Simulated assay, not measured.
Amino acid sequence: MLIFEFKTYGKAKQFNAIDEAIRVTQFIRNKSIRLWMDGEAKSWVELSRHCAVIAKEFDFANKLNSMARQASAERAWAAISRFYDHCKKQIPGKKGFPQFQKDCRSVEYKTSGWKLAENRKSITFTDKCGIGKLKLKGTRDLHFYQPDQIKRVRLVKRADGYYAQFCISVDRSESVEPSGNVIGLDVGLKEFYTDSDGLMVENPRFLRKSERRLKKAHRRVSKRVKGSNNRGKARQILGKRHLKISRQRKDHAVKLARCVITSNDVVAYEDLSIKNMAKNHCLAKSINDASWYQFRVWMEYFGKVFGKITIAVIPNGTSQECSQCGVVVKKGLSTRTHVCQCGCELDRDHNAARNILSRGMSTVGHTGTFALDASNAWGEDTSTHAGATLLEQVTS
């Protein structure tokens, strides 16, 4: 499944209609959660049936396309099923009990309620919300795909405008010449990653570099009167600042992941629990700013596209163990050089990357990669850990 995104252009009246459709989407999702809490809907089929009942009961809900109402109920059931899965797997801590949504920013249509122009440069929404015809501007070309391949169309509201996303059912695969290279990656805060060959990639630190502008934008918001137009404008400027940082991180992750995958046939990396690592209040901002998980997601996605092998390695002890003789050399975080009695003297991260590669090559193989599904979420096949067999690999 591919996701193509286009900037939409229209009149203020049309954008107000999109906002109204988004509010209806949020209402139906929250109504579905309430029905589940009250025991009136115990399955996705029952939630889908209640969408028609809600449309008859509320006139504003009837304006939204029927399949768009079902898509809203799907969002609710996705949260419910995720809660059930966490309970079955006995995940420690909070299980993610479904919550009512307060700030929905998108409305999703399935195969009806919209019509794409023949020149693929505009789209018309035909339901009763009154959105009408919107112009599309983007770098992707929809002429390569048939209209029946477009399974969903999503309208997304962001700080800098409204966007249309097209979910296209197609299997993406590309072929490149084998390079014969294998590599291990050790991510860090000082350097974004260090590979087993000793190459270090600089950590861009997009949030740190933009902190001054962010603080200034936050101060402007706090000084404005709540509910005023000036406060709304200040919030929009602040949103654009954060949106730029988010896009910088994604662009960096995509380009770097593609370069790593196309340059190597086998890539071993750390299977980090970033959520737990971010609980350290001293390093949380730097860890989130590095965006390691996004880099891993795109690296595994491109691994599937180009047919390369990606291996997730348990990182325990990779920094302490000597990559040459295997002796454990205890060292703190402040010690950046690995010195062993066998004569091995390497940078701490370089030594860890060599250990990661060694553990990765000891595994049987790996076929787990990430791929986009229709809800714009990442569906994941679990990565094969070092020492595990492919039969132990399951779909999350």
Rank of each mutant, 00 (worst) to 15 (best):
M1G: 11
L2D: 11
F6A: 12
G10P: 01
K11F: 13
F15K: 04
A21P: 08
I22Y: 03
V24H: 06
T25H: 11
I28S: 10
N30Q: 15
W36Q: 13
W36F: 15
K42Y: 07
S43D: 07
W44C: 04
E46C: 07
E46S: 12
S48V: 12
R49S: 15
C51A: 04
A55G: 07
E57Y: 10
F60R: 10
K63F: 09
S66K: 15
A68W: 08
S72I: 05
A73N: 05
A76T: 04
W77I: 00
R82W: 03
D85H: 05
G96D: 00
F97A: 10
C104P: 03
Y109H: 00
K110E: 12
G113R: 08
W114M: 01
L116H: 01
E118K: 13
N119H: 11
F125V: 08
T126Y: 03
K133M: 13
L136E: 07
T139P: 02
R140V: 00
D141G: 10
L142R: 09
Q146F: 03
Q146C: 02
P147Q: 06
P147V: 09
D148W: 14
Q149P: 02
I150D: 01
I150F: 00
K151D: 08
R152G: 06
V153E: 06
R158K: 15
C167D: 06
V176K: 01
G180F: 07
F192Q: 08
S196M: 13
G198L: 06
L199T: 09
E202V: 02
P204Y: 07
K209P: 01
L214I: 11
L214Y: 07
R220G: 01
V221K: 02
V221T: 04
K223R: 11
K223Y: 00
A234E: 09
A234K: 12
A234Y: 13
L238P: 03
G239P: 05
K240D: 02
K244E: 03
S246N: 04
S246F: 01
R247V: 01
R249Y: 09
K250G: 01
D251I: 08
H252W: 14
L256C: 09
C259T: 12
V266Y: 07
V267P: 02
A268M: 04
Y269P: 00
M277W: 06
H281Y: 09
C282R: 15
A284C: 07
Y293W: 15
Y301R: 11
Y301I: 05
G303V: 14
K304S: 10
K304Q: 13
V305W: 10
K308H: 12
A312I: 06
N316F: 12
G326T: 05
V328T: 09
V329F: 00
K330I: 12
K330P: 10
L333N: 14
Q341G: 06
C342K: 07
L346W: 11
A353G: 10
R354M: 11
R354L: 12
I356S: 06
S358W: 03
M361F: 06
S362I: 04
S375E: 11
S383R: 10
T384F: 05
T384D: 08
H385A: 14
A388L: 09
Q393Y: 07
